[in-house]
């Protein structure tokens, strides 16, 4: 286990280092001068030059890369060009929206998907199963922003139960905050739930074909008992993998939904920062997301060990 962890950590460090170089290089190639962008098309050349100097954009590339990575290593994400506040502060504010939203969506998707997958697998081949699978196909196919707009029309404009968008801040109370997050969470959860229920179903069906299931059935267990006691646990590994990927996606890939509901989340922060060429914010947020994805994968790997006793005992898969 220790060996396994150590190896993972070294890989993590290398991945992060490579990622930092790629991110930095990419953003340098992208055209656009942040100083010119801030001062607009009427600005005089010397004002732009003065701002470039103030932002440190006139320094050579390796020095700027060094300063950025050096700062990161000390936990300093730098100061935003446009907002003039520390990037860590910006990320912190946004996480208060993005993290609860991602968790809420993930919880919703899991709560819907696992029972649906289980039910569908246990009714394999029946009309119910086909019906559910057709429904999940629809869930994957429907663009979530369109679904979101429909929900806004119904729940915000017509029924006026929830606001059409925006986020009041948690200081306005838990209930108000949740009210603003519920529609976006459903919109995000729906396609994820559709995918997850299909994965759950097919993982279960795979497992159900294994020898030990037949043995369990042969020793007289009911189909239901076999499903719950033997199949589900073994089918959890692919389900966990998908869950891990989904969480990373929900944290970083919600730009469209954040736009529809004008939520101040991480996705919008990146989007705004890219269009304003706030390079330092883009670099730091992206590297943070890379680190998060790697960390979640690591966590998923570790939970495999919880689910699979072979991994816990230090034999089997982790030796490879």
């Amino acid at each position: 286990m220790l060996h396994f962890l150590l190896k993972k950590l070294i890989f993590t460090a290398i991945t992060l280092w490579v990622a930092s170089m790629v991110i930095f290089a990419l953003l340098e190639i992208v055209p656009g001068d942040p100083a010119q962008l801030m001062l607009g098309i009427n600005a005089s050349a010397d004002a732009v030059a003065a701002l470039r100097e103030q932002m440190g954009l006139d320094l050579p590339l390796p020095i700027r890369y060094g300063a950025w990575v050096g700062g990161l290593l000390q936990g300093d994400f730098g100061v935003s060009y446009t907002y003039s506040v520390p990037v860590s502060e910006l990320i912190g504010e946004r996480l208060w929206v993005s993290l609860p939203l991602a968790l809420l969506a993930l919880a919703l998707s899991t709560v819907i998907a696992i029972p649906v997958g289980l039910y569908s697998a246990s009714r394999r081949g029946t009309r119910t199963d086909t019906g559910i699978m057709a429904f999940t196909q629809l869930g994957i196919a429907i663009p979530n922003f369109w679904f979101a707009l429909l929900m806004v029309y119904l729940f915000a404009i017509w029924l006026q139960w929830v606001p059409a968008g925006g986020f009041p801040g948690w200081d306005q109370g838990l209930f108000k905050g949740l009210k603003s997050l519920i529609l976006p969470a459903i919109a995000l959860a729906l396609p994820q739930a559709a995918i997850l229920s299909r994965v759950t179903r097919s993982a279960l069906l795979d497992v159900m074909g294994e020898d030990y299931i037949r043995t369990a059935r042969a020793k007289g267990l009911t189909a239901r008992a076999v499903l719950w006691q033997h199949a589900l646990r073994n089918a959890l590994i692919p389900v966990l993998t998908i869950l891990g990927l989904q969480f990373a996606f929900l944290l970083a890939g919600t730009i469209i939904i954040e736009n529809v509901f004008y939520l101040p989340g991480l996705g919008r922060l990146i989007f705004q920062a890219i269009s304003q060429r706030d390079l330092i914010v883009v670099e730091s947020v992206v590297i943070l997301l890379v680190a998060t994805v790697i960390f979640i994968n690591l966590l998923v790997d570790l939970t495999y060990a919880l689910v699979d006793p072979r991994l816990r005992q230090g034999t089997g898969r982790n030796a490879s």
Binding site: G165, V260, Y262
Partner: peptide, 18 residues
């Protein structure tokens, strides 16, 4: 002053009284 970047969201925000 609330920031609502998306035109469709702007319509919803007006209609919902946000």
């Amino acid at each position: 002053l609330r920031f609502i970047p998306d035109p469709a969201a702007a319509v919803s925000a007006m209609l919902a009284g946000d």
